[in-house]
Amino acid sequence: MRLAQVRTPRNLLAAVILALALIVPFLVGQNLYLLTVLVLMLIFIIYSSAWNFLTFSGQGSLGHAAFLGLGGYAASLAAVRLGLPPLLTLVLGGLFSAFIGILIGITCVRLREWFLAMVTFGFAVIIQTLVVSQLAPVTGGWDGFAVPKIVPTSIPGYLVLEYYVVLLLAVLVLVLFYFLLRSRIGLALAAIRENETEARAAGINPVPFKLFAFGLSAFVSGIAGGLEIFHFGYITPEIFGIDLSFWPIIYSITGGLGTLAGPVIGTIVVTLLWDGLNVLGLTYGRFIIIGILLVLIIIFLPRGLVSLPGEIEKRWKRKGE
């Protein structure tokens, strides 16, 4: 596997980014704005990585906000109704999300990859409709309800603590994915993605692996959903919105589909670009720029920004010859 190759500079880069992430609060101090931006960025790194993990198994989802939202609602309800601490209910939310994810997966493993994309998109629409209509007595309908914060605001400098909690979770998720992909499971997933028929011939039953990928992706998305809600302190059905389904796709493609670093790089680059273009006063323009970027990357750089150094190197070498 490509990402499993150990390249010193690449590891160094990862180490430096991590070190930077660790010392950021000391650099920016109590700057709430930067911390908020970074916390949201980290939550989206977790979410995009979860979405991207699905593509390792050759599956794709257009409605991942369903799992973000399910995790968010389950975690919030557990925290509010049962009075459990948010950090614990995060896991509960993730498990609930995974449970529903596996149910969807069971119905979908037999489907073509793009049927699955349709089904997940539809599922997000259905869940949102349910939450605001039939389930409204529990979910508060469109009004939503208030939830506790990850770290109680009464603790001084709670946002810094919150930042470290989210950072820790992000690192844990990435490390988990790293080892999973290097394990036999990762190899099996790669085999299924490249050619399902051949994988079957080699004695790999794709169904449990695909289900595992779907369940784990839903689990991590659910955790990201819980984090986001506990960061806001208020949940509303907007969490199932189409835009929240599309962002992880954009982040992952920009960074590099099917790579571990892709969603991380993609989230950072696109978020910076997004906010930067806003400062320049491009309102509709930035959507167009993101759209063009997406089209260009899919056509000319199918492995995303992470493959850019390699591509440039190739060009240079070719010129040199």
Partner: peptide, 10 residues
């Protein structure tokens, strides 16, 4: 599907 996403935005 992903390229259509870009087209939608554009």
């Amino acid at each position: 599907i992903f390229i259509s996403l870009g087209l939608i935005y554009i």
